[in-house]
Write a protein that binds this DNA or RNA. Structure first.
Length: 276
DNA sequence: CTCAGATCCTGTGCGC
DNA sequence: TGCGCACAGGATCTGA
């Protein structure tokens, strides 16, 4: 479900709810469902978070990290994960965090592609899922044309699959990959090694712009994504190509094309995006 | 190492 | 109305 802008929006929503009160909120206990997500949480770790305070929230790639006194909770939303504050139990609720303010913070995930983990702060420094991550286009100023060009200059796969590769650049998923390539005027099937340095510079700017604008809009609600508050995102109203197969290009009115590229449906304008 | 494809799941929407 | 199928915003594993 969520790409960088959606995860960032959810993280900010959780910040408003969990970190704004005068008294620090602490965790009473955490319960998990019997069905496992992509990982399984060590029960011994889970039992130690009782009494720990919620101190801070950060986003690492598409992960949300809840910082406690001695531990960190790690959450990846997969395709269909969501967090909400509600006492009622719903189908597909997999993690319930009972809070000292008498609220329950609940993780729901029908497809169970998400990750929920509990690690010590020391373990976080070498957390396996974090060690190979590429640069963050929003948070890390080292993500520039020089970096991306060096990463892809010898790669012979379609550029779209490489900007979705989290080991190169994090946060870009299937929607914003198509959108960024459209903005940059680059055909998604272009072999990465064929891109010029100038094109890569433009692509880097396009990725930053697409993600930044989507954060401002509160993320894209294509089917079921919701902000923590429950409201829809707004960015889906500003998409140019994603999901717009057979519609007219906003600028040139050519018919938007679509094709599965490395397993993911991809959208582009045949006039505005040239294949190198 | 690199790359394409399969895989983990459930829900939804479409065509018949 | 009901059924089967294709597809869905991600990451990881396998085998070529």
């Amino acid at each position: 479900m969520p790409e960088l802008p959606e995860v960032e929006t959810i993280k900010r929503g959780l910040e408003n709810i969990l970190l704004q009160s005068r008294d620090k909120i602490h965790i009473l206990k955490i319960e998990t469902s019997s069905l496992r997500l992509r990982n399984s949480v060590r029960r011994s770790q889970l039992n130690k978070v009782g009494g720990q305070s919620l101190l801070n929230l950060t986003r690492k790639a598409k992960y949300i990290v809840f910082e406690l006194n001695d531990f960190c909770l790690i959450s990846h939303l997969g395709m269909t994960g969501s967090w909400r504050i509600e006492k009622d139990l719903r189908n597909h609720d997999h993690v319930r965090i009972f809070l000292s303010n008498n609220e329950i913070l609940t993780y729901n995930d029908p497809r169970r592609f998400g990750v929920f983990d509990v690690v010590t702060k020391r373990e976080l420094e070498h957390y396996p899922r974090f060690t190979a991550l590429g640069l963050d286009p929003i948070l890390d100023s080292r993500f520039n044309g020089e970096y991306l060009f060096a990463q892809i200059r010898k790669r012979f796969s379609p550029i779209k699959s490489l900007i979705m590769n989290q080991q190169i650049v994090v946060g870009v998923g299937n929607i914003y990959a198509s959108e960024a390539l459209y903005l940059a005027g680059i055909h998604p099937l272009t072999f990465a090694a064929n891109l010029t340095r100038v094109q890569v510079d433009i692509l880097v700017s396009a990725i930053k712009e697409v993600l930044f604008d989507a954060i401002v809009c509160g993320g894209s609600t294509v089917s079921d994504y919701r902000q923590t508050s429950g409201s829809s995102g707004d960015a889906q109203n500003f998409l140019f190509v994603y999901g717009k197969s057979k519609e007219n290009c906003f600028y040139c009115e050519a018919i938007i094309q679509s094709q599965v590229i490395v397993g993911r449906n991809s959208f582009w304008c045949p006039e505005c995006q040239s294949l190198m």
